[in-house]
Structure formats: structure tokens, C-alpha cells
Amino acid sequence: MRSKRLLYPYLVWMALFVIVPLAIIVFYALTDKAGAFAPGNLGYVKNSASIYLDSLKIALLSTVFCLLIAYPFAFLMSRMKVSRQRMMNMLVMVPMWMNFILRIAAWILILDNNGILNRILLAFGMSRDALPTFLNTEGAVVVGMVYNFLPFMILPIYSVMAKIPNSLIEASRDLGCNGFQVFRRVILPLSVPGIITGITMVFVPAASTVVIAPRLGGYNLIGDQIDQYFKGSANNMNAGSMLSLVLMIVILISIAIMNRFDRGEDTVIM
């Protein structure tokens, strides 16, 4: 009984800061400036179809790269001495304490035409005309996303990996598994929950993020378009709400698909 009563403040919080804002967005999405029902807002979504696809593509790419980098890293980290694990954990977290905009600005300094990377190339004797452009490319956007969201992939995977006892790996070795089989039959299945959490925690913010694409890529993704509808001269909250409502639905569907995959893996393990 007592524990239930403790829940009430949380429920009020949820209602105030999750349900009510959501309802407001739905309301704005379905009405026009005068407040009348306006299904025509869907037209904004139709016009932005390719931007949705772009955003999903970039988010997917970033998630894949994050996973490729984070998985071996998390595994190696989980096999270290406990004291060293703590230190590595810190090192993963520290960049996140820095302001997000600053971290993006740092990448601009590195990738700019006259940036650190190109200066190094110049120092190695490349001519100014032959220098590659890094900034304002899709590659730069993916780099920025991977850099920003990598900790969200490492930490969940690491936390499940840390729970895999060494004895399990030794036992599978004793029973005749080779290195690949140990990975395929023991480590991978046991780390799936971490992978799924990691993918969700990278994919969802990557698909809806702001600032990264315009600053590093010179173009807008869907999050920036929504931002512009609210902040830019268009000042069209209804269009912005509609776009973000549809974005939420798209992300929800993606998560549902992923969760289904999760359960499928679980049954394999069983």
C-alpha cells in the first residue's frame, strides 16, 4: 500500500510533463493557426517525405557505426580489472559533461577547410587545391552523430557484458567451442538486451536530433526542420507539431520492430 502512495507524485509528474505536452502537440498538429481542424497539415509531411528518409538513413548509419565501435570496446572493457573498468567508464562519460554545442564546435574546428585535419595534410606536403572538404558533407554529420551518441551505445552493452562471468566463457571453451563459437553461442546471445537498448538509445535521438546536421553538414534533417517551423520566420507551430507527431510515430514503429527482434532472440536463447 505504502509503496503505491509513493508513486503518486511520479504519476502527477508524468501527467504534467509527458502526457499534457503530448496532448498539446497532437492538438496543434491537427489544427490550423485559428484553431480549426486542419487535416491539410498532413501536406507538410508529404512535402518532407524525403527529409524523413534522409534522417532515418543518417540515424541508421550512425547506429551501425556506433555498434561496430562500441561492441568490441565494451567487451574489452568488461574483461579488464575492476579498477581499470571504472576508469574507462569515466573516460567514456567525461566528454558528455561538456556542452553539446561546444563539442560540435570542436568538430567544426577539426573538419573546416582550414581546420586541424587539413592543416595536418598541408604539413605533409599536400597542395591547397587538392585538399579534401570534410565539413558540410554527409560524412561529417555521421561523424558528429557517432561521436555524440557513442557513450549511449557503449554503456548499456558494457553493463550486460560485465555480468557475463568469465567462467561461462571458460566452460564453453572446455566444451570445445572455438573463439568464434564462444562469441556466437555465448557472448552475443547474452549481450542482446544491451545491444537493443544501445540501438534504441542511439537511433532515437539520432533520428530527431537538431544542430548536428546544419552545423557539420550544412543542411537540415527532420529535427532541424521542426526546429525551424517553431523558431524560424515560418513560425508555423502547427506544421512543426505535425512533423514531430509523425516523427514520433515513425520512431515508435522502428522501436516496435526492434523489440520484436529482441523477443525473437530471447526465445533462441531459451
Binding site: 512535402n47 518532407s48 524525403s50 527529409i51 534522409d54 554527409e138 546544419p214 553538414g217 550544412g218 543542411y219 537540415n220 534533417l221 532541424d224 526542420q225 525551424q228 517551423y229 524560424g232 520566420s233 515560418a234 508555423n236
Partner: peptide, 17 residues
Amino acid sequence: IENLMNELWLEIKAENK
């Protein structure tokens, strides 16, 4: 014209790849 400009602007910014 103001509305058209704003819509076109968002298109430009999204396609500037």
C-alpha cells in the same frame, strides 16, 4: 509571398547536401 518564401527556404535548407 512571405509564406511561400518560408516554405521554399525550408526546402532549400533540406536539399543543400
